[in-house]
């Protein structure tokens, strides 16, 4: 495992834990898109189903379990917890996420490495992950004033994908992967979606002011 891949995994893990701890500690989820969280849960379940069929390493299995359980916990808090669910911005979080699920599933049926259950699930999870942040970005834009922790959550999530792209470039040159166009394209789209957010995040950090996204 190269350093980019490891840093990617760590920023990814950190983003999910930051969000879970924020919700757990403050008992609020304002500014957090439940739709994005449900999409991520679906992404993790679709991709990490191989947990039960293919053993790769202890690191791999533990991380998969942590990702599935922590995102399930976030969804559970937002849907079921008596205090947390009342702070959910339901009226603002209106993105039609079922459209994203349907579109990426069809895409996975057409573009996959092999027409098998495992490969279709894998391609679906990659495509869905690329666009899963959209409801969250729309919600952040509507709320204008972004909570520090929510801002950090999106920042680490974006950093994760950027590190993964560096990892793929590194692997491409050191191991010679030639048929990895699915994650390449999806990863570039996914990272591109964050570009705007990153720009305002750095501005707020540089000027030491609260993050605010333009309408």
């Amino acid at each position: 495992m190269n350093a980019f891949r490891f840093l990617g995994d760590m920023t990814h893990l950190f983003s999910v834990l930051v969000l879970l701890l924020k919700i757990y500690a403050t008992k609020t989820c304002s500014g957090v898109s439940r739709k994005t969280q449900e999409l991520y849960l679906l992404v993790f379940v679709a991709r990490y189903l191989d947990l039960f069929t293919d053993y790769i390493s202890l690191y791999n299995s533990v991380m998969k379990i942590v990702f599935i359980t922590s995102s399930a916990a976030i969804v559970w808090y937002m849907r079921r917890h008596p205090q947390v669910r009342r702070t959910y911005d339901k009226e603002q979080d209106t993105f039609r996420h079922s459209v994203l699920v349907a579109a990426t599933f069809v895409l996975a049926l057409i573009f996959n490495d092999r027409f098998t259950f495992r490969e279709i699930c894998w391609a679906f999870s990659i495509y869905l992950e690329a666009v899963a942040i959209l409801p969250q970005l729309v919600l952040l834009q509507r709320c204008r004033n972004v909570d520090n922790l929510t801002g950090q959550y999106v920042f680490f999530l974006g950093a994760y994908r950027a590190f993964y792209i560096l990892n793929w470039i590194y692997r491409y040159f050191t191991e010679g992967h030639h048929s990895r166009w699915i994650p390449w394209i999806a990863g570039l789209v996914q990272t591109g979606l964050y570009a705007d957010f990153f720009y305002y995040y750095f501005l707020s950090w540089k000027n030491n002011v609260k993050l605010e996204l333009p309408a």
């Binding site: 891949r5 990814h12 790769i56 991380m63 998969k64 894998w122 993964y164 191991e175 990895r180």
Partner: peptide, 10 residues
């Protein structure tokens, strides 16, 4: 093979 190496990522 090339299928397995992508599945070792998260």
């Amino acid at each position: 093979d090339s299928d397995d190496e992508k599945h070792d990522e998260l």
